[in-house]
């Protein structure tokens, strides 16, 4: 078996403030293969973004990594030197952020911002950079790319800005793309366009994608595999269809139940009662126990066993919704 492009093992992340440590992520493990899209799903504060940013070691200096390893193409990223990290950032890994409004520098033209990445990682002459920039803008579907080169971010629409962000992320043909809720700030129609653009480009370049989202619709549209995060832990991972059909973890089941189904005549949204734990106030035992409909005394203390259903589908739960092959 070949090594996965990105392999995260038992990663824990704490944030230090003064003398107290806040646990943000607990022993998270996942991997992204070439040409595969892994969706990292979870509520706000579940640790999705922290996990993704740790891959490039972009967390603030207060972040501590008590355990785990992050291997990018077999190279350890935890504690890696500046040169290794700079090579990884933008070259091996491209990142698309949530807010296209603020992720582009308002003072520089589109051309300059794309050219900067190319010049950083693939030094070449101005003319070549210009050609490459135009090519990238064509690729992400911006009409009249030559004319748009000199445009400032405020002259573009939200969708166009996100396209430019994607162009920047793809400027050096990265092998891994991290997309941190890239469609959250966009209209629904534009969302679909951007999603299918990401999908096409990933297929075309055979990239591995780590897609962070809280939108299950987006997950079913885009992902090959899903990792559901809750309270800093990965509650369940599995191939998208299997996970949607047979969720193991009650939390995953609850999430599925929240998706409204107009055909079934739901008048109200179904919800999971209670609130997601704040980082630092995560309960002992199973993190989901306080909100779980199937909670038992055993859930509230001690380690939670892993259960598997099939080779690639697993969850951490004492009493999974279903066991083994049906």
């Amino acid at each position: 078996m070949t090594r996965p492009l990105l392999e995260v093992r038992d990663l824990s992340i704490d944030f230090a403030s003064g003398d107290t440590l806040t646990h943000a992520v607990h022993t998270a493990s996942f991997s992204v293969e070439k040409g595969e899209t892994l969706a990292l799903v979870g509520e706000s504060g579940s640790g999705k973004t922290v996990t993704a940013m740790s891959v490039l070691q972009l967390l603030p200096p207060a972040a501590r990594y008590p355990s785990g390893s992050i291997r990018l193409k077999g190279e350890e990223m935890l504690g890696a030197g500046k040169q290794t990290l700079r090579r990884a950032r933008g070259d091996t890994v491209g990142v698309v952020f949530q807010e296209p409004m603020t992720s582009l520098n308002p003072l520089h033209t589109v051309h300059r911002q794309i050219a900067e990445v190319i010049a950083t990682h693939r030094p070449m002459n101005r003319q070549r950079i210009r050609e490459r920039t135009i090519e990238l803008l064509h690729l992400v579907g911006i009409a009249e790319a030559e004319k748009r080169l000199g445009a400032f971010p405020h002259e573009l629409s939200g969708g166009q800005r996100q396209r430019v962000m994607i162009a920047i992320a793809l400027a050096c043909r990265p092998q891994v793309l991290i997309a941190d809720e890239p469609t959250t700030a966009l209209d629904v129609t534009v969302q679909m366009q951007v999603l299918s653009l990401i999908r096409e480009l990933c297929d075309a370049f055979d990239m591995g994608v780590l897609f962070i989202t809280h939108d299950l619709g987006v997950v079913s549209e885009l992902a090959d595999r899903v990792a559901v995060m809750y309270g800093g832990k990965i509650a369940e991972t599995g191939p998208v269809e299997e996970l949607f059909r047979n969720p193991l973890h009650p939390y995953t089941g609850g999430l599925m139940g929240c998706v409204p189904d107009p055909a079934a005549g739901h008048r109200r949204f179904r919800t999971i009662p209670g609130q997601a734990p704040k980082p630092g106030e995560v309960p002992e035992g199973c993190k989901f126990a306080p909100r779980c409909a199937h909670v038992q005394p055993a859930c509230r203390a001690g380690a939670v066993p892993a259960v598997a259903a099939g080779a690639r589908h697993a969850a951490h739960c004492h009493f999974p919704l279903f066991r083994g092959e049906p």
Partner: peptide, 22 residues
């Protein structure tokens, strides 16, 4: 801490580039 400054760092820009350009 502006988003586009963090974005520039994510794309592998060095400290000096970020300071002077962004």
């Amino acid at each position: 801490n502006l988003e586009y400054v963090r974005a520039a760092r994510t794309l592998g820009a060095g400290d000096l580039t970020i300071m002077f350009r962004h």
